[in-house]
């Protein structure tokens, strides 16, 4: 049955990975990799950065696999790690560009997290206007929104990821939604 790891429940794979089974860990990575990559790309703005963030998240996950209290909750955990590593990557980039005297005011992800011709064919008008609206959000609000809606993280978890208070998360998320609703309604 070892060849069938891809049909095995998360908790079993987590147990094996915690025991040192790299094949089980890779099965988990394949299972949740697309979601992690989608989230990281929305946060960082490019697949190149997203793949770096996913890789860092997986390294951390391997090291800390035996600290996972609820093995069945591995998906949310991997997404939280992905969110944190993506934010770290953006911070490093920003520090680097301001040290280099670069454009401090420009968001590091000017690659336009919204743009992406590959989705246009299947995307409805809702998606297109949402993508455009997301681009107009202040960076901190956009991060909150992505961590909430794409990663499914709680206010507390987002607060930890962004190193701000849960109350700030609540405020930013609400402002993000308010702005998005208005942008999308203007779009129509």
């Amino acid at each position: 049955m070892r060849d069938h790891l891809d049909v095995v429940p998360d908790a079993i794979l987590v147990g094996r990975a915690a025991d040192g089974d790299t094949a089980a860990f890779e099965a988990l990575a394949r299972r949740y990799g697309p979601h992690m990559r989608a989230s990281a790309r929305r946060l960082t703005g490019s697949y190149a950065d997203a793949d770096d963030a996913v890789q860092e998240a997986l390294v951390q996950a391997w090291k800390q696999m035996d600290t996972l209290r609820e093995p069945a909750a591995v998906k949310g955990w991997l997404l939280r790690l992905t969110g944190s590593r993506s934010i770290d990557l953006l911070r490093r980039r920003r520090n680097h560009s301001s040290l280099a005297g670069g454009e401090e005011d420009a968001p590091p992800d000017t690659v336009a997290p919204g743009a992406g011709p590959e989705t246009t064919a299947v995307a409805g008008a809702g998606i297109e206007s949402l993508k455009a609206a997301l681009e107009t959000l202040p960076e901190e609000q956009r991060r909150c929104w992505i961590l909430k809606e794409i990663n499914g993280q709680s206010y507390e978890e987002i607060a930890q990821t962004l190193n701000i208070s849960p109350a700030s998360v609540r405020g930013r998320l609400a402002r993000a939604r308010t702005a998005l609703v208005r942008e999308m309604e203007d779009w129509r």
């Binding site: 989705t119 809702g126 949402l130 998005l180």
Partner: peptide, 22 residues
């Protein structure tokens, strides 16, 4: 807000599809 949430779900699904397979 519910329409926004629905659009968010669509965006999420399209992002995951675009990210490719594991």
């Amino acid at each position: 807000l519910r329409r926004l949430s629905a659009a968010g779900n669509e965006l999420f699904a399209s992002d995951v599809a675009a990210a490719g397979s594991g």
